[in-house]
Amino acid sequence: MSSLKLKTTILDRSISKGKNEVSLNGFALLFSEIVQYCQNRVSTVPELQAKLSEFGQQVGIRMLDLLIVREKNGKREIKLLQILIFIKSTVWKSLFGKEADKLEHANDDDHTYYLIEKESLVNRFISVPKDKGNLNCAAFSAGIIEGILNTSNFPAKVTAHWHKGTTYMIKFDESVIVRDKQLEGR
């Protein structure tokens, strides 16, 4: 250690209970700055969404650790459906104050799941300009999902789309589906 002052580290404190609240407006303004910052560094909508997703992944990775310790007693989900339900309920409730509205399985593709949210909190104060019609800033939340899934060893790609509000399309890697089939019945 270079400094002589004693730092209290994060491990010296007890884990936060997650009951503190801040103003939604403050968050909205911060998020707006993030969107602008990303926008200044990219030229297309898909790139912008990818950037926002990266931010979300950082949040997701950390939130996963926190929730596993605080809500799950250190136990991690290993089954596909369980982790999706964990995201839909536990994660969404802690981050956004309510569960996501729906979880659906694609009819024609067993790799694909949809998490549907009528009104995404991050989109509350965002109006999308006409020339960027398909931009959905909930790419940030999609990143949160992707961060959680990838860190839990469920490699997947998650994207946000305007459909019934916001639909997150979760496409799992082949290996995840194969593994989950093996676990079936155990």
């Binding site: 936060s16 997650g18 503190n20 609240e21 801040v22 103003s23 939604l24 403050g26 968050f27 911060l30 998020f31 993030i34 931010f55 950082q58 949040v59 950390r62 939130m63 926190l66 802690s94 981050l95 956004f96 104050g97 909190l121």
Partner: peptide, 9 residues
């Protein structure tokens, strides 16, 4: 909103 979302963001 939950302050953790804000903090982590």
């Amino acid at each position: 909103i939950n302050s953790e979302l804000f903090t982590l963001t």
